[in-house]
Design a protein around this nucleic acid. Structure first.
Lengths: 107, 107
DNA sequence: TGTTAATGTTCTCTACAGCGAACAAACTGT
DNA sequence: ACAGTTTGTTCGCTGTAGAGAACATTAACA
């Protein structure tokens, strides 16, 4: 029986176009364990793994853990933006942060 | 060697006037394990325990985990940026996304 | 259709999460 | 100072986290 956590991870992973192995590498996990998280509902995944996975998938830890959580409309736009942002090169991200700081503070 | 997570839990617990046993009961843990979290730095506490403890101590999971050395430098920069971003007005966020799309795709 | 690479699944094994119960220290009042 | 109580600490044990490697499936493409 697939659980909410596993379904969320798998959906977000596929949205990002990541394979099990890539997400595993990004989060210092094994692909077998990511697979188990998605399909086998391990009873107590560690906070560290969940934190790293949430981070790479561009969502809050709370969202992954809370069974009833649904992303609001505005959140999906922002989360999507963040996911795209995370794919960019470090230099590009730096430029965006600088730009955002300018725009964000001038109003 | 006490770690950041343990120190935070203990400080917050005492601020709230809770004993090990009370916090343990509130979070469906054993007092021995709460004590270990505070004093013995278990390498991989479960997300569920940390979530429940954070909840009862009135802080975000992120706060308990944040200073954790397991999260990389680059990640904290990006996460911080995203946190700031999400505080901004919808209009501002929209501008930033548009700008990011331009910068992100031109290279 | 057959071959190869990419992705997903199953298996086994070690180390640690997390409990319960015993033990120790610190408070309480007398 | 001593007994009772409350809080903190240690220890031994069971079950599972999570890795790694083997195996299976799917994708790609000639």
């Amino acid at each position: 029986m697939r659980n909410a956590l596993g379904e969320k991870i798998q959906r977000l992973r596929k949205e990002k176009g990541l394979t099990l192995e890539k997400l595993a590498d990004l989060t210092d996990s094994s692909k077998s364990y990511i697979w188990e998280l998605e399909n086998k509902n391990p009873p107590r995944p560690s906070a560290e793994k969940i934190a790293r996975i949430a981070d790479k998938l561009g969502v809050e830890i709370e969202y992954l853990l809370d069974d009833d959580a649904t992303i609001s409309e505005a959140d999906t736009v922002d989360a999507k933006f963040y996911r795209e942002y995370r794919k960019m090169r470090p230099e590009t991200r730096k430029k965006i942060r600088a730009m955002a700081k300018l725009i964000g503070t001038e109003e």
